[in-house]
Amino acid sequence: MLQTVATPGSLPETHALLSKLDGARLIAGGTAVMPTLNAGTDEFSSLVSLRAAGLSGIVVKDGVVTIGAATTMTELADEPALAFLQSALETIASPTIRNMATIGGNLFVKQPYGDLSACLIALGATATVSDGTATRIEPVEKLVASRLGPKDIVTQLAFSIPSPGSFKFVKAGRKALNAAAIVTVAAVVSVSDGVVSQCRIGLGGVAECAVRARSVEEALTGNPLDRTHAEQAAAKADRDIEPFDDSHASAWYRARVTPVHIRRALVGE
């Protein structure tokens, strides 16, 4: 049963409480932790909130954006420099949830949620992780797979703003709005001299965590960005995914439609 909820006012204080309290769990926006608490849980007996720890805010400098981990989705959507993310953000939950859910928390929500993580993977974002004594920087794609150590706190995320038009996003869900992912595809694709010079593709909803579609990236790089090549590259996605059954879709269906949505994200058809 929950014994304590602490709302520390700084990062060092947060670390201190996380070590001191028995069975402590971090809580940011609360959209994933609170349903667990409300249903009754033995997973944790204390909560340490990041709401007042000074971890929110967005800084844009020299084409690099640095985002505090407790920044909400709505705050991201309101940032003019992140206008390219707007349509992706609007597919995530509802405006009410986006007023609460944070970019840091989204890294650790259970699939098929966590579309923003797929975007961050495509953007090549890194996370700054503090363990109370030192900080380290980890690529998001690695962090979502390895998860955090018991003392770790993600403090900020950073990525370079992609060149105009190079960020691509498609999400397939059961409803037009406020739907969990059947498949989420985010990509940053650079084309020079008529061929794909660089690309990064993040997928959501098709594995235990958001994943990078490296096989698709390799197959696409060096080829023209057209329907035929996009389709050929997307067909390699089965090497990158481990889809699951849930109430939204079967693993079979997810595997079947993933290449289709990758193609649609890449070439818009």
């Binding site: 909820v5 602490a6 709302t7 809580i27 926006g29 609360g30 959209t31 609170m34 349903p35 608490l37 409300n38 909560l47 909130s49 709401r51 007042a52 709505t74 405006p95 009410t96 949830i97 007023n99 609460m100």
Partner: peptide, 12 residues
């Protein structure tokens, strides 16, 4: 701002 009150621990 609109929020779901069931997801907010009052202490925070």
């Amino acid at each position: 701002k609109t929020m779901m009150s069931c997801l907010l621990p009052v202490e925070t």
